[in-house]
Design a protein around this nucleic acid. Structure first.
Lengths: 235, 235
DNA sequence: CAGTGGTCTAGACCACGGA
DNA sequence: CCGTGGTCTAGACCACTGG
């Protein structure tokens, strides 16, 4: 019936260990010969599986050292660049954390059953000390218990690392949809611009292993001094 | 001194043949054993080189048939989707083709020496019969001789295929920068909207083999019924 | 130095496509 | 049916990292 290649099965098995906190980011995996022995396949087959995961960005190889779980750099999923090409680390100020029943759109994006609760985060992000991004984040309350009761003050700048360390939920990919929009009254106030100023709207679903949607986010960005780049530049 | 892997050298050699019109899109390459014999390496090394080129999107494999040069689908580099997720083929109306000395920005984007000539194309693109994109295209006149003297009527809908077939210049990759903007008076007229309507600006450099920049393009898009997607969806 | 991943080989068997 | 690419093996040698 099934003719799934060995290396695919091994990828699945490794994904399982990555999904559970079996291996933490930065940690070295067993060496290729070890894995080959464990799965009872040749080293070449292990390499094929690892190569795929490296390509997906989940693993990093270092000749002479070993293969490690990728550490999240804050830039990994941040696609805004300053006009001169430099990437800046955004500072975030959380405005509000609240919890409520998921809307239709939220349920669709996060693949939730109707009636489920979501936690929403509202925040402003600063680039070079100026407010540039107005952001709404939405996650399933089930996956992030206690998040709704946190103080806005305690939420870190970059939440993906936080998701992983506090809730054991790794973000490994995302899908973004972009549109042009204009600033609402509230956005205009927070971003220090006039109502109607053009904004770049980034609607984004972040995924964990096996394409499970974790976070739905809408970022509305001032692009007077920055641009969104695809694919991300090296610098 | 040199420690370039064999498969990298082979990739280079194959790229050379792809760049010259040695092999045309859709054409089958020699089989792996043939190539292995020709380059005097093992089949595994050939596979490694081909795998890389497939990953770059230059080649396509078909089990039982062979390895072929990728044919350009009009969608390959078109990232706009209708709100319901469907991709439409844009219709284009060319407004003007002209030739002039390259500006500073154009020289930088296309890596041209100062004083070089460029050919500019101005056009409007339609989605579902409605004008949605106002586009400026800029290419080196040296690479596209005679293009400036063409009639706007004779320019096809999708130019990348045209570049390749008429001028032997294949487009294999691009880099896009996105910003939010507002419609100028001229854009407003062509797109049937009011001045100040928000537009998604896509500034894009298209590359040929070995990262040679070929085309610089600015598309200003109405995103009232469409969105830009990264990464591109399957559908 | 021992152990890691990086490259390369020579072979095997299988799944698929076309004549 | 043969030739194609797809998977898998077992082993070689090299380059790099760390102690």
């Amino acid at each position: 019936m099934e003719k799934i290649p060995l290396y695919e099965q091994i990828k699945e098995a490794l994904l399982g260990r990555l999904a559970s906190d079996h291996w933490r980011p930065g940690k070295l995996l067993p060496s290729e010969p070890k894995l080959a022995e464990e799965f009872d396949v040749s080293q070449g087959t292990i390499r094929r599986a690892l190569d795929d995961l490296v390509l997906q960005g989940l693993l990093v190889r270092h000749q002479g050292r070993g293969t490690a779980v990728t550490e999240h750099t804050p830039f990994r999923f941040f696609h805004l660049f300053r006009d001169d090409g430099v990437r800046e680390l955004p500072q975030s100020k959380t405005l509000r954390i609240s919890s409520n029943q998921a809307s239709r759109t939220e349920r669709d994006s996060l693949e939730l059953a109707s009636g489920k609760q979501v936690t929403r985060i509202l925040r402003v992000r600063y680039l070079n000390l100026e407010p540039k991004i107005f952001e709404t984040i939405c996650v399933s309350s089930d996956l992030f218990p206690g998040l709704a009761k946190m103080s806005a003050r305690d939420l870190p700048n970059t939440v993906y690392r936080f998701y992983e360390q506090e809730f054991g939920v790794p973000i490994v990919g995302k899908r973004e949809r972009l549109r042009a929009a204009t600033a609402t009254k509230s956005e205009a106030r927070y971003l220090h611009v006039e109502v109607g100023t053009p904004l770049l709207e980034i609607e984004c679903v972040a995924y964990s292993h096996r394409a499970q949607p974790i976070e739905w986010r809408i970022s509305r960005c001032l692009t007077d001094e920055h641009y969104y780049c695809n694919p991300p530049e090296s610098a």
